[in-house]
């Protein structure tokens, strides 16, 4: 008779030891809510030292900008590396139509050029690397509104297009930007009506 309560007692003790409440420890595995969300902040701004980046504003955001560009650095100390040449100032507004598409308008002091521009993100680099690159295009049309220069409407038009390819590696972002500009009528006979360029951007956080 003495063994019956002992066995029951032993079973009870074993049960309570196995089920004794423990210090609260997280049970849920921490997982990102949207694993294939775009990588944030490949670049912090839509423009970086005058060069467009893959950064685009979100839907509904209105962005204002005041941009100053100066003369050529090759002017040396005599021209104080371009600062003495005076600033070309562009005041601009751009609006996020969707999270991938924005459109904007601006006016610059140089030849009173008024421009319309748009940027579209074709690819967004994702956190889970299912898309490894950012790919965006920017198109720009400008019209010279300066009086008294004797040009008809089509001669006043200029065009610009750029493809932006970028990737963020942890705290390092790289971007390559092949670009092209076309002038319906160059400002002087010595100027080319088409220009090609390659922009390189590096951002380290």
């Amino acid at each position: 008779m003495k063994r019956i309560p002992f066995i029951s007692l032993f079973t009870c003790c074993l049960f309570f030891i196995l089920n004794w409440p423990q210090t609260a420890e997280a049970q849920l595995e921490r997982e990102r809510a949207i694993p294939d969300a775009p990588v944030s902040d490949v670049f912090w701004s839509g423009l970086n030292v005058g060069l467009s980046t893959v950064h685009n504003q979100q839907a509904g955001d209105l962005n204002t900008s005041v941009l100053h560009t100066f003369g050529l650095v090759e002017g040396g100390v005599d021209r104080f590396w371009g600062l003495d040449d005076g600033a070309n100032t562009r005041i601009g507004l751009s609006y996020g139509i969707t999270d991938r598409l924005s459109a904007g308008i601006g006016r610059m002091t140089f030849n009173n050029v008024v421009d319309l521009q748009s940027k579209y993100n074709i690819l967004r680099q994702t956190r889970d690397n299912s898309v490894p690159l950012e790919l965006a295009v920017k198109v720009f049309t400008g019209i010279t509104t300066q009086d008294g220069i004797g040009l008809d409407f089509s001669e006043r038009l200029t065009y610009f297009a750029s493809v932006m390819i970028a990737r963020k590696f942890n705290r390092l972002s790289l971007q390559l930007s092949p670009m092209m500009a076309h002038f319906n009528r160059p400002l002087s006979a010595a100027d080319q009506d088409q220009l090609f360029g390659l922009g390189i951007l590096v951002n380290v956080e």
């Binding site: 409440p21 423990q22 609260a24 420890e25 997280a26 049970q27 849920l28 921490r30 990102r32 809510a33 949207i34 969300a37 944030s40 902040d41 912090w44 504003q57 979100q58 839907a59 509904g60 955001d61 962005n63 996020g96």
Partner: peptide, 23 residues
């Protein structure tokens, strides 16, 4: 039963209605 309360929130899902402010 285990008297456990365990919650988490992915902070990048918080939206304030202004993308720049969110970033």
């Amino acid at each position: 039963e285990e008297n456990l309360v365990d919650f988490f929130l992915d902070l990048e899902t918080l939206k304030t209605g202004n993308g720049r402010r969110d970033r």
